[in-house]
Design a protein around this nucleic acid. Structure first.
Length: 437
RNA sequence: GUGCCUGUAGCUUAGUCGGUUAAAGCGUCGGGUUGUGGUUCCGAAGAUCGGGGGUUCAAGUCCCCUCAGGCACCCCA
């Protein structure tokens, strides 16, 4: 029986052309995030199980992690998300770090689940966190940063939508305003999270099952629907609008507006799955109907660092998956044409290999990326290989060239051929490379 | 974990009511006289039709099982 050539289920091989795209995406992420003053960190892919048990989400920890016992009997997990890890790192150096702390990472994460569109078992995720800012200027920065990344990818404003909500506002509305008990609040919150996947009547049916007869009689169902239908903060009940959480959201929207970010709106149905969020939460949706899941999400989690036995640090962060980003870029025709990093392919004619070494070294010392063809192949074949690899320039080195110390440089795109000495080749190719940028 | 759908050359697919040696495009490889690719022309290789069982004179085609993949749910990036 032959071995399978497929990669592990839900994971991807990255052939050079795939890797090129990945590096484009990661490079764009890095560039913008660093423009906002964020610094890159990293951590091991394995973590202790218990750092997720505290605050992630029950289902992820129990059913969706790759977890095992190591040879020393320790409960180990392949990280399913980065937030607990970075919180652990901050907690470990809680006293010596200079706040606010701006950190980012692009880790690969694993979750054991059935793969489908926009969701694999292994994915890479841009994680950006701002530690030490308690007011909503942190959220303003975070969302501005997200918006700047979209612009850097060339995304038009109508291709994505930012939505915001506030955990404390949700708690107030469900708890104090509607008067629901904590257990019912939690169930309703989970139900709201799935609201857009069902029709209104089945949603109402499920709400009625959670509510007590007394609550239903008092009109809690209708009140809940009215809240969820709110398109703006001003559509909410007056008492709710006076809540600090609502005022914080209003402040956030106001500041984003003056930053020129207008495709952001309040969405009372936005919940987010992780239990650790305690303040403003936000998500970005692709407006293409083919990608109807949230592309990235985040929010405030002030309590997580404190779980490691140090004073808490107010924190806002988000995660953005490479799979959802790739689907987005594809749907909106934003994938760039990417080329090999090799500048020139040397075609050796006959027995010229030894004589060509000096020229090749000169090109490489001059900063060019040079791949060398096999001299036992026919010239036409070497050209074909260069062309297939997408290498734009071919340098022919044979007897004639070595005698004259001038070599034939051919551009495969334009078809133009030049006879130049080694210094002139370096200058010419460097100039061409520069013009491309 | 639950449900639905799909498996035919490396890839994308055609294959009639079950009927002889399973077809095409792309790709790959070779060639169109020995120092020029991409375009073009000629040619070749490449498929036990995912696997196993069954029905039948006859199965790529029908039935069952199984494996793999996709989609949806759950959850989430």
């Amino acid at each position: 029986m032959a071995l399978s050539t497929k990669p592990y289920k839900g994971a991807r091989d990255f052939y050079p052309e795939d890797k090129r795209l990945q590096q484009y995406m990661f490079g764009t992420w890095r560039r913008v995030v660093e423009r906002f003053g964020y610094e890159e960190y990293d951590a091991p892919i394995l973590e202790h199980l218990d750092i997720y048990q505290a605050k992630t989400s029950e289902e992820i920890v129990n059913d969706q992690t790759y977890s095992f016992e190591d040879r020393g009997g320790r409960a180990v997990v392949i990280r399913p998300e980065m937030t607990p890890t970075v919180s652990r790192m901050v907690a470990a150096k809680r006293q010596e770090l200079a706040y606010p702390l701006r950190w980012y990472s692009i880790p690969n994460l694993w979750r054991y689940e059935r793969p489908q569109r926009g969701r694999l078992r292994e994915h890479w995720q841009l994680n950006v966190d701002l530690f030490g800012v308690a007011d909503c200027s942190a959220e303003v920065e975070m969302i501005s940063l997200v918006d700047a990344i979209f612009k850097e990818f060339g995304a038009p404003k109508d291709s994505y939508e930012l939505r915001v909500n506030h955990r404390a506002l949700v708690d107030y509305l469900l708890g104090e305003y509607l008067g629901l008990k904590p257990a019912a609040t939690r169930d309703i919150r989970k139900l709201i999270d799935r609201l857009h996947k069902m029709d209104r009547s089945s949603f109402i049916g499920k709400v009625d099952k959670i509510l007590t007869a007394n609550e239903r009689q008092k009109g809690a169902t209708e009140q809940l629907l009215a809240i969820l239908d709110a398109k703006k903060l001003k559509d909410l009940p007056l008492q709710a609008q006076k809540q600090p959480a609502a005022q914080e959201l209003a402040e956030l929207l106001k500041q984003l507006k003056s930053a020129g970010i207008t495709n952001v709106s309040f969405d009372g149905t936005l919940m987010r799955g992780f239990d650790y969020y305690n303040g403003i939460v936000f998500e970005v949706f692709d407006t293409d109907p083919g990608n109807n899941r949230s592309m990235l999400g985040g929010g405030r989690y002030d309590g997580l660092v404190g779980l490691f036995g140090v004073p808490p640090v107010p924190t806002v962060g988000f995660g953005w998956g490479d799979v959802t980003l790739m689907n987005f870029l594809g749907a909106h025709d934003l994938l760039p044409k990417l080329h090999t990093t090799t500048d020139v392919y040397v075609v050796l004619v006959g027995d010229s290999s030894q004589g060509a070494q000096k020229v090749i070294a000169t090109l490489r010392n001059g900063g060019l990326n040079v791949a060398v063809g096999a001299s036992n192949k026919k010239i036409g074949d070497q050209f074909k290989i260069a062309d297939k690899k997408g290498i734009e320039n071919v340098l022919i080195i044979g007897k004639n060239e070595l005698e004259k110390q001038r070599y034939t440089l051919k551009n495969l795109v334009s078809g133009q051929e030049l006879e130049l000495d080694d210094k002139a080749i370096v200058a010419s190719l460097k100039k061409a490379a520069k013009a491309k940028l």
